[in-house]
Design a protein around this nucleic acid. Structure first.
Length: 934
RNA sequence: GCCGUCUUAGCUCAGUGGUAGAGCACUCGCUUCACACGCGAUAGGCCACAAGUUCAAAUCUUGUAGACGGCACCA
C-alpha cells in the first residue's frame, strides 16, 4: 500500500466523521461493559444565532480530547451537545428581518406570529454551529442534542420557577433596574458593561430655597433627571448645610417643592456636598428615597423619551435632547452655575452598546440568599467545582458569590420562556405550571399571562440536569432521553438491567469547559440550581480556557476586524493541526493567534503521515503485534524506544488528568518526532529496509525475503507507531484514524474490551496507560551515550566542513562497559555518523591531524589527514573548553561554599561533586588535545 | 477604590527553589531512495527592575514600572 507523499486532510475529514457517527461510536451505549464507569460532559450550549469562532474551537477541542481519551479508557462516555435559544439575539434578528422584508414591527404581526417566525428562523439558521462541530470532529452524541426551549427543558423551567416562587425565593417587585431603551428590556447586572467617556460633563445646577434668596448647588451628569427630583440630600454632619436641612426647595422647571434632607449616603467631600435625589432613576437615590419615604417620580418612558410627568415642555423629548434643554433653561433662569469637564463611566448594553438607563420598573427577581449559600458551601467545603487553573478563578468565584445580589430574571421580550404567572383583572398574580392550573387557583377567573419571558441564563442554569431528562414533573426518561433515534434504540441500555436514567448515570458531570466570561452568568448558576433541584454537584471540575486573541493581541471582534475563522484554518492547515495547536496552549492562558503555530502542527501531521508511509513501505511480513514489545531479545534501540514510549504514555495520562493539555501535546510531539522518527526509525532503518540491486536494471531495488529478526523489528516499529497513533488520537482524530486503519493487523481485536464488537476504529482502542515496569533507565542512559557520540561526530563533520561523500574512521576511548555499548551498536553509529569504521579502545591512538571531542561517556577522535584546518580545530576545542570551564567555575564556587555543603541535601552535593569530577576530566582531555595541535 | 494576572531568546509562547526550554525566524551544510510541511550542525537570554527570605531565587515575599482582566463606585 503506497501513501501519497504529503498528507491531505480533506479526504480523511470527509469520510471518517460520517462513519463514526453512523456507527454509533459517539453514544455511551457503544460501551458493552455493564460495569463501566460513566464520564460525561455537557457542552456550553452555543447561541443558535452563533457561528463557530476560535473560542468554540478551543473549548470543543478540549472537550473532545477529554471525551475521546476517557472513551478509550473504557468509560461509558457522553458528550452532550445542544444550543441555547439566545433570547435577545434571536429576537433582534427576527425584528430586523421583519423590518427589512415587510417594513413591519413585531406589534404589527402579534406575539403568536412573531414566535412562529422565531422558530422558523431557528430551524433555518440555528444549526450553523452544530454543522460546524461535525467538521471539528466533535464526538458528541447527536441523539441527545438538546435545545433550551425543548418541551422537556421548558417544563423544567416552569417547575423551577414555580418551586422557587412557592418558597418565596422568586418575587415580583418595583426596583431600579438596568433598562436598555433600544432593546426595550431590563438587563441583569451582568449584562451591563461599561464605557469610559473622557469628554463627559458635570453640570452644576442652582436650586432656589423657598422663602430665601439663597440657592443650593447640586452637580449631576444627567441633568434631565432633575425633573424627577424629589429631594436634595446633604450630609447631616456637614456644617455648611446644617441650617438648611428641613428647608424646602422650589424645584426649577417644575412647580414642585422638595425638601432638603440629611442622609449619610452623601459624601461631604465630594462635589458640592449636596446631592439631588431622583428615586425613580438612580439606585442610590432609590435607597435614600426609601429611607426618607420620598415620592418615586418616573419622568421617562421605556423608550428613553421623557413622559408627561416631566412636564409639557419636555414630554416626548429624547433623554439626551431633554438633557440639553434642561441646561439651556437653567442658563436662561440664571441658575446654571457651571459645567465642568468630567470623565464618566457609562453603563452600556452588552449587546447593542446603547447607554443603559437606571429606571424604576416592576420586574421578577430571584432572591439569591439560599442559592448563594448553596454555592458557597460547595466551593468552600467540597471545592466544587474545582477550577483549572485554580488561580485566580476559585477566589474570584467565591468573592463574587459572597457579594451576590438579587437576580433580575424577567425580560421584555417575546422569544424565550414566558413567565408562568397569570393576572386577573384586579391584578392578583397566580403562578402556576400551566394556564389550567392558574385558572384553577384563580377560581376560574379570566386571566392573562405575564407578557415577559425569563432571562436566557435562567434556563441555561438548569442545563446540567434538564438535559438529562429532569423536568420536575415526570420521572426522568430512560437512556436516550426524549428524542432517541432509531439507531440508539437498538443499543443496549446504559446500565445492566436498563433501569437507570441518564440523570442517574451522567449527573454529576465530570467537567465543564468554558470561558472566563460566563463564570458568573452560567457556571455559578448551574452549580447553585443543580444542587438545589437535584441535590447533586453539576460538575466536579471546571476548566476555564483563555481567550484566543487576534494577531494584534486584542480580543477578536468584528469591529476590530482581527478575527480568525476556524473554518478557514481547517481548510488551510487541516482540522487536526488546528486542534492540536489549540490544545498546545497552556490551560487558561490567553494567546495571540498566529498561523505559524498551526503550521507547526500541520508539519507535524505530515511527519506522522510520512513516518507511517515509511513503515508501511517496509511492513511486508509483519503486523501490529503488542507481544513484539515484550520480547527478550530486543536490542538497545528497541529497549530504549519501548522505555520512552511507556514513559511518554504515563506522563501524557498524568498531564491529561490535570487538564494540562499543552504538556501532553508537547510530550507527544517530541516523543514522536525526536525519539521515534529522528532516532528510532533511523536506528532500525537498516534492519527493516533490506535492499539489493536488481541485476538488469542498475539502481533499481528489490526487497529480499526477510530474516526473522528483521520481521520482529518490523513488528516492533509498527507496534510503536500504532500505540503512538492511539495517544495522538484525542487531539488528531482524523489523521490517526486514517493511518490506523491502514496499518497491517489492525482490527476490532485491538479494541478496548468494552467495545469488542464494534466495527474497527482507533477511537475504540485502549488509550495506552503506560507501564512503569517497561521503563528501562539503563537503556535510556546507554542510548543517550550513543546519541551524544553520534551528535559529536556529526558536529565535527559540520564544523570541519567534511562533505558526506568522505567517510572517515571514528576512534572512541571509553570504559569497558561503554566500549561494549558502542561495539554492540557499531553499525548504527557508522550509519548515522556517516563513518566508515570504528576503533574502540581504552585510549585514543590517533595522528596529530585529528578532530577531537568529548562526551560524558567517551573521548572521540576523527583522523582527518589533509582535511583538517588546524585553526578551526583549535577554535572548536577552545570553545568546548570555555563552555565546560564556565560550568566548572560555577561548581567550584558552589562546592567551596561551606554553607552549601553543610545544608544542601547530601545527594545534591554528591551530584555536583560527580559532575565536577566529570568536567575536570573532560577539560583535561580537551586541553591535552589542544596542546597536541601545537 | 478593591481584588487579581502577566512581564523568559528577534517573534509567539512553555517551564521549574539547585547547570534556562520549544516552535518559527536567523547562520552554516545537505536534491541521504518516509518526509524540503524535510535532514544535520550552530548561534542567540544577568528569565521587567529593586530589596528581602534561603546554602541556593528566573522560581518564594515585598515594593517599583509597564501591559491587562474582574468587581465596586461614579452627585
Amino acid at each position: 500500500m503506497e501513501l501519497a507523499k504529503a498528507y491531505d486532510p480533506k479526504e480523511a475529514e470527509e469520510t471518517h466523521y460520517k462513519r463514526w457517527e453512523e456507527s454509533g461510536f459517539f453514544k455511551p451505549e457503544i460501551n458493552q461493559d455493564a460495569n463501566a464507569e460513566a464520564y460525561s460532559i455537557v457542552i456550553p450550549p452555543p447561541n443558535v444565532t452563533g457561528s463557530l469562532h476560535m473560542g468554540h474551537a478551543l473549548q470543543h477541542t478540549i472537550m473532545d480530547a477529554l471525551t475521546r481519551w476517557k472513551r478509550m479508557q473504557g468509560y461509558r462516555t457522553l458528550w452532550l451537545p445542544g444550543t441555547d435559544h439566545a433570547g435577545i439575539s434571536v429576537q433582534r434578528k427576527v425584528v430586523e428581518q421583519l423590518k427589512k422584508d415587510e417594513h413591519k414591527k413585531p406589534m404589527d404581526i402579534g406575539r403568536e406570529e412573531f414566535l412562529r417566525r422565531c422558530w422558523q428562523w431557528k430551524e433555518q439558521y440555528g444549526n450553523t454551529i452544530t454543522e460546524q462541530m461535525r467538521r471539528e470532529g466533535a464526538s458528541v452524541d447527536w441523539s441527545r442534542h438538546r435545545f433550551t426551549m425543548d418541551e422537556s427543558l421548558s417544563l423544567a423551567v416552569r417547575n423551577v420557577f414555580c418551586t422557587l416562587y412557592e418558597e418565596g425565593q422568586i418575587y415580583r417587585g418595583l426596583r431600579i433596574v438596568n433598562w436598555c431603551p433600544k432593546d426595550k428590556t431590563v438587563l441583569s447586572d451582568l449584562e451591563v458593561k461599561e464605557e469610559t467617556k473622557k469628554d463627559g460633563k458635570l453640570t452644576y445646577l442652582k436650586y432656589p430655597i423657598k422663602d430665601s434668596d439663597k440657592t443650593i448647588t447640586v452637580a449631576t451628569t444627567r441633568p434631565e433627571t432633575m425633573l424627577g427630583d424629589t429631594a436634595v440630600a446633604v450630609n447631616g454632619d456637614d456644617e455648611r448645610y446644617k441650617d438648611l436641612v428641613g428647608k424646602t426647595i422650589l424645584l426649577p422647571l417644575t412647580n414642585r417643592e422638595i425638601p432638603i434632607i440629611a442622609d449619610e449616603y452623601v459624601d461631604a467631600e465630594f462635589g458640592t456636598g449636596a446631592v439631588k435625589i431622583t428615586p425613580a432613576h438612580d439606585p442610590n437615590d432609590y435607597l435614600v428615597g426609601e429611607r426618607h419615604n420620598l415620592e418615586q417620580l418616573l419622568v421617562m418612558n421605556m423608550d428613553g423619551t421623557m413622559n408627561a410627568a416631566a412636564g409639557p415642555e419636555f414630554e416626548g423629548l429624547d433623554r439626551f435632547v431633554a438633557r440639553e434643554k434642561v441646561v439651556e433653561e437653567f442658563e436662561k433662569l440664571g441658575l446654571l452655575e457651571k459645567i465642568d469637564d468630567y470623565e464618566v463611566t457609562l453603563p452600556i448594553c452588552e449587546r447593542c452598546k446603547t447607554i443603559v438607563e437606571p429606571i424604576l420598573s416592576e420586574q421578577w427577581f430571584v432572591k439569591m440568599d439560599e442559592l448563594r449559600d448553596l454555592g458557597l458551601e460547595l466551593i468552600k467545603k467540597e471545592n466544587a467545582p474545582h477550577f483549572s487553573p485554580e488561580i485566580p478563578h476559585a477566589k474570584v468565584y467565591t468573592t463574587w458569590l459572597e457579594n451576590l445580589k438579587d437576580w433580575t430574571i424577567s425580560r421584555q421580550l417575546w422569544w424565550g420562556h414566558q413567565i408562568p404567572a397569570w393576572y386577573d383583572n384586579e391584578g392578583n398574580v397566580y403562578v402556576a405550571r400551566t394556564a389550567e392550573e392558574a385558572r384553577e387557583k384563580a377560581g376560574g377567573k379570566e386571566l392573562t399571562q405575564d407578557n415577559d419571558v425569563l432571562d436566557t441564563w435562567f434556563s441555561s442554569g438548569l442545563w446540567a440536569f434538564s438535559t438529562f431528562g429532569w423536568n420536575g414533573a415526570e420521572p426522568p426518561a430512560l437512556a436516550g432521553g426524549t428524542n432517541v433515534d432509531s439507531s440508539a434504540a437498538s443499543m443496549p441500555p446504559a446500565h445492566a438491567g436498563g433501569s437507570a436514567s441518564d440523570l442517574d448515570t451522567f449527573l454529576p458531570t465530570d467537567v465543564l469547559v468554558t470561558g472566563r466570561d460566563i463564570i458568573f452568568l452560567w457556571v455559578s448558576r448551574m452549580m447553585m440550581l443543580t444542587k438545589k433541584f437535584t441535590g447533586k454537584v453539576a460538575f466536579k471540575d471546571c476548566v476555564i480556557t483563555g481567550t484566543v486573541l487576534g494577531k494584534d493581541g486584542k480580543p477578536m471582534s468584528k469591529s476590530r476586524n482581527n478575527g480568525v475563522d476556524p473554518i478557514e484554518m481547517f481548510d488551510k492547515f487541516g482540522v487536526d493541526a488546528t486542534r492540536i495547536y489549540l490544545a498546545s496552549i497552556a490551560t487558561g492562558a490567553d494567546i495571540r493567534w498566529n498561523d505559524v503555530g498551526v503550521e507547526t502542527y500541520r508539519n507535524f501531521a505530515n511527519k506522522i503521515w510520512n513516518a507511517t508511509r515509511f513503515c508501511l513501505m517496509n511492513a511486508e511480513g509483519a503486523v501490529v503485534d503488542h507481544q513484539s514489545l515484550m520480547t527478550e531479545d530486543a536490542d538497545l534501540a528497541d529497549r530504549w524506544i519501548i522505555s520512552r514510549l511507556n514513559k511518554t504514555a504515563l506522563e501524557v495520562n498524568k498531564a491529561l488528568d490535570k487538564y494540562e493539555f499543552h504538556t501532553a501535546v508537547s510530550l507527544l510531539y517530541h516523543f514522536f518526532w525526536d525519539d521515534f522518527c529522528d532516532w528510532y526509525i533511523e536506528l532500525v532503518k537498516d534492519k527493516i529496509q533490506v535492499f539489493t540491486e536488481f541485476p538488469s536494471v542498475p539502481g533499481s531495488l528489490v526487497v529480499h525475503e526477510l530474516p526473522i529478526v528483521q520481521r520482529e523489528t518490523r513488528k516492533r516499529v509498527l507496534t510503536v507507531l500504532e500505540i503512538s497513533l492511539r495517544m495522538l488520537h484525542p487531539f488528531m482524530p482524523y489523521l490517526t484514524e486514517e493511518l490506523w486503519l491502514k496499518l497491517p493487523g489492525t482490527s476490532n481485536a485491538l479494541h478496548n474490551a468494552a467495545y469488542a464488537n464494534a466495527e474497527a476504529t482507533i477511537m475504540l482502542t485502549t488509550f495506552p496507560p503506560g507501564d512503569l515496569r517497561a521503563i528501562d533507565e539503563a537503556a535510556e542512559a546507554e542510548m543517550s551515550a550513543v546519541i551524544d557520540l553520534i551528535t559529536k561526530v556529526r558536529n565535527i563533520r559540520a564544523e570541519m566542513n567534511i562533505p558526506t561523500t568522505i567517510k572517515f574512521t571514528v576512534h572512541i576511548a571509553a570504559n569497558a562497559a561503554m566500549q561494549k555499548v558502542f561495539e554492540d551498536n557499531k553499525s548504527q553509529i557508522l550509519k548515522l555518523a556517516k563513518a566508515e569504521s570504528l576503533v574502540i579502545a581504552d585510549a585514543l591512538d590517533v595522528p596529530r591531524a585529528s578532530a577531537k571531542a568529548v562526551t560524558n561517556d567517551a573521548a572521540i577522535a576523527v583522523p582527518l589527514e589533509g582535511l583538517i584546518d588546524f585553526d578551526v580545530e583549535r577554535t572548536r576545542l577552545s570553545n568546548q573548553i570555555a563552555k565546560l570551564t564556565d560550568e566548572k567555575d560555577r561548581l567550584t564556587e558552589q562546592l567551596s561554599n561551606a554553607n552549601f555543603v553543610d545544608r544542601a541535601p547530601a545527594e545534591k552535593v554528591q551530584e555536583l561533586r560527580d559532575r565536577f569530577a566529570e568536567l575536570e576530566k573532560q577539560i583535561e582531555t580537551l586541553n591535552n588535545n589542544l596542546e597536541a595541535l601545537n
